[in-house]
Design a protein around this nucleic acid. Structure first.
Length: 484
RNA sequence: GCCCCCGUCGUCUAGCGGCCUAGGACGCCACCCUUUCAAGGUGGAGAUCGCGGGUUCGAAUCCCGCCGGGGGCACCA
């Protein structure tokens, strides 16, 4: 039998990095076994539905290259894949549970429910439904119906015994049934709750492995009970831990837990994000860190998944992104970084020029956006922004006249260079430093600020070469003017 | 309050009874390379394996208890 997994988000906002890691594991498991990965939209909460929520999910999966075989957009043998379009299916299944005495209609008002809960909490009892409507007589039920009360349907949880089942990461887990209450499976608005909808869909869609967030673990017995009530064989459940913040609590906005797509905006590469996320709770062996998609697929399996929560290590992600940037061909880096540069500059950049710049900055950036601060001076017109003190630098702080002299002679030497190449420029300026009796590096520092406006920049002579004779000389003269 | 899960360097992890005086990675520090910044190379600091009991010739690895952390307890998913 083919392995079938699913990612079933509810469209309540942008998926954050933790949700996506779970989706990644589901995807990897399916791909590893040559099975199917299904996208299902769980939009059964009309209150929390947000505009664009589905698109955000789809966009994120696409960016990361997590492709699905069946879903709302591509269809499939078990369509529809959007729960709000499957209401008749849930109704039918709810009816079945009522017929078999596994469920009942409950007419309790929210007010009554609140009171019951409050009273229980005051008595320091666990808050749960008191099963008031569990054994309603036919007359009572008829009366409530006549009053026009819209009922919910609750699952009839066994009063005694325990429900034991297996979690692929944690082994046997057991829950006493009397700690469970009669949970709602169909809301009064006719929509199902997650408990019913997800189980019915997982079964109907022939899902074999459910990898989901750890927060579902305490609901596991309910889900197993539902499967048993229908007489179905449950899938393999694996509850993946949550990603936690630096304070070890569930990752949330206050940790700067970003929506997955924000990483795209920050200049992270999808392959780096995938690699990084895969290593949060899973490992290939005791030493491999950089793992490409194919290798991930080849080796991924749930037996190496860890049950304990992992903290998000932003430093490591940044390092990893840098690794991927350096391993890329310069052509590809140019293509990928280009939009970031053009957005910041506000105009298009010439491909040929960018192609000459990229090799100079490739090992100096860790995110795509960093190309902007690293290379913007290649594109600025007119005078650069820096102050005279930076230009003079520490080396010439007490002898600014020497710096000026150096600049003057660099200008003269550059004018004399016949072939505008970094080799010729370096030879000329090194000789000059010798003649002046100053350290080459000290002189280079002044030139660097003059032509880039920065103290940290790409290699000096390659930079001059790319900048060209005209711009280089103009900037050197401009700098000299500021010194005088 | 009740239920469930988790517990190896700051962080991600390897480890599945002897190979562990606990390995790798990020970060940190030092040195080398070097025109700056990076990248790269080398080395270093950093974990009494949460604590306490067992079992065993031998435990990070198995068992029990405790402590700590987290999650859940909705007509939300």
């Amino acid at each position: 039998m083919s392995v079938r997994t699913r990612y079933a988000p509810s469209p309540t906002g942008e998926p954050h990095i933790g949700n996506i890691r779970t989706a990644l594991f589901d995807w990897l498991l399916a791909r590893h076994h040559g099975g199917q990965f299904i996208l299902r939209i769980e939009d059964t909460d009309r209150q929390r539905f947000t505009e664009g929520g589905v698109e955000a999910q789809v966009e994120t999966l696409r960016w990361l290259g997590l492709d699905w075989d069946e879903g709302p957009d591509v269809g499939g043998p078990f369509a529809p894949y959007t729960e709000s379009e499957r209401l008749d299916i849930y109704n039918e299944h709810t009816e079945r549970l009522i017929q078999t005495d596994w469920a009942y209609r409950c007419y309790c008002s929210r007010e009554r429910l609140d009171e019951v809960r409050k009273a229980q909490q005051a008595r320091k009892e666990p808050p749960r439904y008191d099963r008031h409507c569990r054994e309603l007589s036919a007359e009572e039920r008829a009366q409530r119906e006549a009053e026009g009360t819209k009922p919910v349907v609750r699952f009839k949880t066994p009063l005694t015994g325990e429900t034991a089942t297996r979690d692929a990461l944690r082994g046997e887990v057991t829950f006493a049934n009397d700690t469970l209450d009669d949970f709602v499976i169909l809301k009064s608005d006719g929509y199902p709750t997650y408990h019913l909808a997800a189980m019915v869909d997982d079964h109907l869609m022939e899902i074999t492995h459910v990898l989901r967030g750890e927060d579902w673990l305490s609901s596991l017995p309910r889900h197993v009970l539902i499967y048993r009530a229908f007489g179905w064989e449950p899938p393999i459940f694996a509850h993946v831990s949550n990603i936690v913040g630096a304070d070890r609590s569930k990752l949330s906005k206050r940790h700067g837990a970003h929506a997955a797509l924000e990483y795209r905006e920050m200049g992270y590469l999808p392959e780096a994000v995938v690699n990084f996320l895969a290593l949060l709770g899973w490992s290939l062996d005791d030493h491999t860190e950089i793992i490409d998609r194919e290798t991930l697929i080849k080796h991924f399996d749930i037996d190496r998944l860890l049950p304990n929560p992992a903290a998000f290590n932003a430093d490591k992600l940044l390092w990893m992104n840098g690794m991927y940037i350096r391993e890329m061909s310069p052509e590809e880096l140019a293509a990928r970084a280009r939009p970031f540069l053009e957005k910041a500059l506000g105009h298009e950049v010439e491909a040929a020029r960018l192609a000459r710049i990229v090799p100079l900055i490739q090992e100096r950036i860790k995110t795509l956006t960093e190309i902007v601060e690293m290379a913007d001076f290649f594109f600025t017109e007119g005078p650069l922004e820096y102050d005279a003190a930076t230009l003079v630098g520490k080396k010439f702080a007490d002898a600014p006249a020497r710096a000026a002299e150096g600049l003057e002679r660099v200008i003269a030497a550059s004018e004399r260079v016949t072939e505008w190449s970094h080799e010729a420029l370096e030879a000329a300026i090194r000789t000059l430093a010798d003649e002046m009796g100053v350290k080459a590096g000290d002189l280079f520092g002044v030139v660097r600020v003059a032509i880039t406006g920065k103290t940290a920049a790409p290699p000096l002579f390659e930079t001059m070469e790319v900048l060209g004779r005209e711009v280089t000389l103009a900037r050197l003269r401009e700098a000299l003017g500021r010194l005088r």
